[in-house]
Design a binder for these strands. Sequence first.
DNA 1: AATCGTTATGTAGATATTTACATATAGAAA
DNA 2: TTTCTATATGTAAATATCTACATAACGATT
Lengths: 125, 125
Amino acid sequence: MAGPKGSKYYDVFLKFKVWLENTEGESILGNGKFELIDYIDQLGSLKAAADKLGISYRKAWGMLKDAEEKLGFCLTEKHRGGQHGGNSVLTTEGKELIEAYKELLVEFDEAIYQITKKFFNKVNK
Amino acid sequence: MAGPKGSKYYDVFLKFKVWLENTEGESILGNGKFELIDYIDQLGSLKAAADKLGISYRKAWGMLKDAEEKLGFCLTEKHRGGQHGGNSVLTTEGKELIEAYKELLVEFDEAIYQITKKFFNKVNK
DNA sequence: AATCGTTATGTAGATATTTACATATAGAAA
DNA sequence: TTTCTATATGTAAATATCTACATAACGATT
């Protein structure tokens, strides 16, 4: 969101980000990983999700592994082998998590909208 | 904020971050720079602010320069020379910006509190 | 048993970011 | 005019991240 034209703050946007952290302050998963998990859910495999996001399988696999290790439980159930190579499906926990995250984003968007409106009203002349 | 003890999500916290971006998607200033600017305001010099934050003067100077370049106007008025070496004071714009940012944080904290409460209620068993 | 596509993982190289160190300059006050 | 200390800035080294490429294993289907 930007201020009115001609303002000092024109073309400046207020952005936000939400993510999960553990007690050590390490990031567990943020938007990128949530998106990946969501695509795994929609497309049925990590490979397909990686392709959809335009990132390498290697990278996507690393993201997923990192999130699961830090959480301490699996978000996906992986199957390998078979004519189609294998597939991945979300665990119950994984489904719950992305569902909650989606709802969270909706609420956040609403909050940010209200807050940024005030911010730019205050900051702009 | 964490879920109830014994929960799958115990020790997992929902965090957020806000910052200003320009149209190119470059970050202009976030919490670290705001904190620096706030300390300059309180302490009267970039050096003192850097010391307070436990970062090098060189680093603090780079942070400030970067923010001012990207904004296109100065947040501080710098004076060098004199028996005490010099000092820095915030411009009117600088003062306005950190004041607005502080108020913004208060509102964000409130919003995040409400949202995380719902999030963990939803996600925890 | 041969095939096929996905999961699984190591590693070297490239990039980006951060940190450390060094040095110059201004200018009021003594 | 000497001193003192904050502002000002370049640069090399150290870290951290990301990317690219390689290779192995698995197992249902044919």
